[in-house]
Nucleic acid binder design. Structure first.
Length: 872
RNA sequence: GCGGACGUGGCGAAACCGGUAGACGCAGCGGGCUUAAAACCCGCAUCCUUCGGGAGUAGGGGUUCGAGUCCCCUCGUCCGCACCA
């Protein structure tokens, strides 16, 4: 028997055409079967797909094809997150219009995705930069404006004074603009925001119901929202501030430590700090220095803690005559709480670092359990846990919670400057969502500014507000702002000359509702068609990178609520199931000249002595570096198109599913790909070999060999099904390898199969099941095998094999037998044997008897179906 | 700095609820087939060992009849931090 090698290069395009011609994966909105919506995070059209996309879309495709086989009406669409910075950078650097650049990238990447053989409904394809998409986004912005969910306020941005442009945080490198190298300044602009904080509590509470989300993502979102219950305390200034300020309001979650307060600190942008700065040149210089740090929280908080003593003092609320100094400090954020804190160094690490640096008092007021009040001191490590309060007058002896309440009650009842000195307050870390971007390639914010009428939303019948095609990118600043005519319009209300808003929306807005648009992308009247959206949503399984754990997912959760409030959808939570997949990583290599070199240019030699590498062109030895995220700068990328051209899409798909658990990083290796390809050929050979032996009528009782194979088949189907349901693709792959080995062992003896009709029938069943099971993972190979087996139709339309439960469970089990927790023997016994029988059989074992040495066991622990442990 | 995760053979991993650590794959080694090579097939493979056994899941401690799994501490790596997507 000679089976030709399987040739993916001819086979894969053939089946892709077959699927496309028959519209196999086009989903009808009137399909009445139970629905299943599987979605992968749509790509940014950067130019070419990368291995991360291959992994992400393969996983989604396995789920989509599996659910189709299980009888669901599957919605599995694809689109493009098409607005964004790189298109504008390309316009500046390569003089190509962002639209042209973007649409060309989309065309190329669409071809790459199609070559992967994904079961996508391409009829629903959308691009967020298309007016047919963003017009609806503008309409929803107007709805949200009317509902009070969109508003303007002043916020800080990173300003590049040379390029005269706003910089993204990633464009600020060591405090300087990435292109100009100029020191970045903080600048205040009036900008548009979405009122996500209106939903703070709800977004927090609803996390509990998202039981098909990873716990880590829910925890990260919980911490991000950051609900904390505390107290606002107004400290009285010992002498009034320059504007006559009498008090400073701080927010604290630890009022119990008030007696340990040794300073009060203001954000450099706190109104009182500002007014003090007006008359104090040194303070103004300090504030100026703080403003040169950019706006990134990570930078602000990792910077060396610095402060400035204003010279003013505030009165301690409880200790008559005591005052503490008022500082301005660089690590106090104006956006959180009241922009001011009181510092209790003994019980807060950051305050302690600050106090040690500036020689401020450190008074411990919470005593750890068992510590001695007379000798307890705090040196370099703050004590932040619970304990009993001391050094604190009327709080002494109380625990932290009780002291909190006592302080709160006392301050609520104290009147300072005409108001209670303390007020209980629930504070959130979550800030409103700043959506204004001073950029061209984004969705224009549909608003007109009129001197008489103020801020006027563009009426819906005048939407979309289109981007002008003829923008110029060679001048610094926002192309929309310096466009000669675009922003000059008549006020929609009074008709007088007015100005368009020139800010565009954050691209996170685009990706906050695309999943809803996919349900009816053909609707020209509105963003969604309610009945259709309500049928398909929520997304049953959403798959994407962990890097989106907070922002994209939280914004989408908010936007869905906003869409509900404005009547566009009928649900709160867009994603019922979430899976976050790991990255594709690769070894790095440095060539003889010390520069990074591409894996495509080297050869790896593996021997007993280890792995070495050299240049393919013979130019010298290559140093093998660490395994890192694929990146252009380190040249450790692999182009999916090259892989598909060389090995075929099925090989690439199989590899990214096989090697690592899907939520962990997978290391791309050439050897691993070769292994995956060997399996492709192996399946093809197995099916070819099986075809020669099957087709007879397998009737009557099964032989022992046939029963064994049938059991292997049904156990494998049950296990693979379970694995795919849990997205454990690497486990499913391992089981399919084992199953192929089992089939291979039977096919190695073809004469035995020919002599045993029941075995031939079992082989046919096994081959049939194997093909159906690999179909979601290697769809082209599966179709080819399906045809070879003589099946009609497409395996893409075939059902998932059903499991005969009677063949999955065995009559006997083999239990490990431990003595004192160490394995000493095995016991094979009837599966339904009761505990007494297991105990008796265990004690009769030679190894157990020897270990006991004639003494009775102290204890025998029998865990049914699992283990026996004898305690001697 | 804050928040979140991860760490198991030469390598990627498996072990689902606290119950046989290392399934499956990669690389390696030995053998078969072959004039030869590739492909393919079979086998060996955590470490130490006096061959009885002992040690072992980043390191240290704890709970338990039993810990890779639970708890505490330490170390290392990775992700996010609000204008990259």
């Amino acid at each position: 028997m000679a089976v030709e090698r399987y040739n993916p290069r001819t086979t894969e395009p053939k089946w892709q055409k077959t699927w496309a011609d028959a519209s196999v994966f086009a989903t009808r909105n009137d399909d009445t079967r139970p629905k299943y919506y599987v979605l992968e995070m749509f790509p940014y059209p950067s130019g070419r797909i990368h291995m991360g996309h291959v992994r992400n879309y393969t996983m989604g495709d396995v789920v989509a094809r599996y659910k189709r086989a299980k009888g669901f009406a599957v919605l599995h669409p694809m689109g493009w997150d098409a607005f964004g910075l790189p298109a504008e950078n390309a316009a500046i650097e390569k003089k190509v219009h962002p639209a042209k650049w973007t649409y060309e990238n989309i065309a190329y990447m669409r071809g790459q995705l199609k070559a992967m053989g994904l079961s996508l409904d391409w009829d629903r394809e959308i691009a967020t930069c298309h007016p047919g998409y963003y017009r609806h986004q503008q309409a929803m912005f107007v709805d949200m404006f009317d509902a009070g969910l969109a508003y303007r306020r002043t916020s800080k941005v990173n300003w590049d004074p040379v390029d005269m442009t706003v910089l993204a945080n990633e464009q600020v490198i060591d405090g300087r603009g990435w292109r100009s190298g100029a020191l970045v300044e903080q600048k205040e602009l009036v900008q548009w925001n979405f009122r996500i904080t209106a939903f703070s509590d709800e977004l927090l509470k609803a996390l509990d119901g998202l039981d098909r989300w990873p716990d880590k993502v829910r925890l990260m979102q919980r911490n991000w929202i950051g609900k904390s219950e505390g107290l606002e305390v107004r400290f009285e200034l010992a002498t009034p501030g320059p504007q006559g300020e009498k008090t400073v309001k701080v927010f604290t979650t630890r009022p119990d430590t008030l007696f340990g307060a040794s300073f009060v600190a203001l954000s450099p942008d706190h109104p009182l700090a500002r007014s003090l700065g007006e008359t104090n040149a040194d303070l103004a210089a300090f504030q100026e220095k703080c403003r040169r740090m950019g706006t990134s929280v990570a930078v602000l908080e990792t910077a060396e803690k610095e402060g400035f003593d204003t010279g003013l003092r505030v009165k301690h609320p409880f200790i008559p005559g005591k005052t503490v100094p008022l500082w301005v400090a660089n690590f106090i954020l104006m956006d959180y709480g009241t922009g001011a804190i009181f510092g209790c160094p003994a019980h807060d690490q950051r305050d302690l670092d600050f106090a040690r640096k500036y020689g401020l008092e450190v008074t411990p007021v919470v005593l750890p359990k068992g510590a001695d009040a007379a000798s307890f001191t705090v040196d370099d490590v703050a004590f932040v846990d619970d304990g009993s309060i001391f050094n604190s007058d009327f709080l002494d002896g109380l625990d932290v919670d009780t002291a909190f309440d006592t302080v709160a009650k006392r301050l609520e009842g104290t009147i300072v400057d005409g108001a209670p000195q303390g007020e209980r307050k629930v504070n959130f870390r979550l800030r409103d969502w700043l959506i204004s971007r001073q950029r061209y390639w984004g969705c224009p914010i549909p608003v007109v500014h009129c001197d008489d009428c103020g801020t006027v939303p563009v009426p819906k019948d005048q939407l979309p507000v289109l981007l002008p095609d003829d923008a110029s990118f060679d001048k610094p600043g926002n192309p929309l702002d310096h466009h000669p005519t675009w922003k000059h319009v008549a006020c929609p209300k009074c008709g007088k000359p007015a100005r368009r808003e020139t800010d565009t929306m954050d691209t996170f807005v685009d990706s906050s509702w695309y999943f809803a648009r996919f349900t009816d992308p053909w609707n020209t009247e509105g963003p969604t068609t309610r009945a259709v959206a309500d049928r398909w949503l929520p997304v049953d399984q959403y798959i994407g990178g962990i890097e989106h754990a907070i922002l994209h997912l939280l914004y989408s959760r908010f936007f869905t609520r906003a869409m509900k409030a404005t009547g566009h959808v009928g649900l709160d939570e867009p994603f019922a199931g979430l899976f976050t997949q790991g990255m594709v990583v690769h070894e790095t290599y440095k060539g003889p000249d010390g520069h990074w070199v591409s894996p495509a240019d080297i050869v790896i030699d593996e021997t007993d002595a280890g792995r070495t590498a050299r240049m393919k062109d013979g130019s010298g030895a290559v140093a093998i570096g660490s395994i890192e995220k694929m990146s252009k700068s380190k040249k450790n990328t692999v182009d999916p198109s090259d892989i598909i051209a060389t090995w075929g899409a099925d090989t690439a798909r199989w590899f990214v599913l096989s090697d690592s658990p899907p939520d962990r990083d997978v290391i791309w290796t050439e050897a691993g790909v070769e292994g995956a390809h060997r399996f492709v050929q192996r399946v093809w050979r197995l099916v070819g070999d099986a075809v020669e032996l099957i087709g007879g009528a397998g009737t009557g009782d099964r032989s022992a060999a046939a029963l064994a194979l049938a059991k292997a088949t049904h156990k494998t189907v049950a296990a693979v099904e379970d694995d795919i349901e849990k997205l454990g693709f690497n486990r499913a792959v391992a089981r399919l390898y084992e199953f192929a080995n089992a089939i291979g062992r039977v096919l190695a003896g073809p004469d035995a199969v020919r002599a045993d009709a029941s075995l031939a029938a079992a082989v046919e069943e096994a081959a049939d099941a194997l093909v159906r099971m690999i179909a979601p993972m290697m769809p082209h190979l599966a179709e080819e095998c399906w045809t070879a087996l003589g099946r009609t139709g497409l395996v893409a339309d075939a059902a998932w094999p059903s499991v005969d439960r009677a063949l999955v469970v065995d009559d006997t089990v083999t239990l490990p037998v431990q003595v004192n927790g160490k394995k000493r023997a095995e016991l094979t016994i009837a599966r339904d044997a009761d505990e007494a029988a297991v105990r008796e059989a265990t004690l009769a074992l030679e190894a157990v008897a020897a270990a006991l040495g004639g003494n009775p066991p102290k204890k025998v622990i029998v865990v049914p179906g699992r283990i026996v442990n004898v305690v001697a």
